[in-house]
Amino acid sequence: MPVQLEIISPERLLLRKDVDMAVLPGAEGDIAAMPDHAPLMLVLRGGLVSLYEGDKVTEQFFVAGGFADMTPDRCTILADEAKRLDEISVETARSRLAALETAFANVAAEDVDAMDTMAKRLQAARAEIEAAEEAHPTH
C-alpha cells in the first residue's frame, strides 16, 4: 500500500503522487514517511525530499523549510518554497548565500529572533548548494 505524497507551496500544488516511501528533512533530523506511519506533524528544515519506489530514489525535490503532516496513508508537505532538483543551480544558490551572509553580518547580535530566522535561511541556502552540487557534479 503506497502513501499519497503531496508537495504544496502557497501558490500551487507541485506534486501529488503515490510513493512507497518519502524521506523528508525534519528540523531535528531526516524522517521517512511510510505507509501506516503514526500521525505526525513536524517542522522541516531546508533540504531534500526524496521519493522512493521500492529501494530506488525516483525523484528529488528541494524544499526551503516548511511543515509536514503525516498520517497512515498520506503525507502532506507545506513547503515555503519547493523546486525539482534539476531546476536548482549551484550559481544562483551561491550568490543567494553570499547575499545572506552579508545580511547576517549586519544583524544586531541582540536581535535573537532576527538571528534565528537568518540562521535558518542560511542553512536552507547551504542545503540548496549542496543539493545542486550533487545533482550536477560538473565542478
Partner: peptide, 26 residues
C-alpha cells in the same frame, strides 16, 4: 481517536509558533 494520537516534532508550541505567521500570510 486519531486526534489524540498525533505526535508533534519538535513539539506543539514550536510548530504553532512557526505555522501561525504562515497562516496569517496565507
Amino acid at each position: 481517536d486519531m486526534a489524540a494520537q498525533y505526535d508533534f516534532e519538535p513539539n506543539e508550541e514550536e510548530i504553532l509558533a512557526h505555522i501561525l505567521p504562515r497562516n496569517l500570510q496565507v
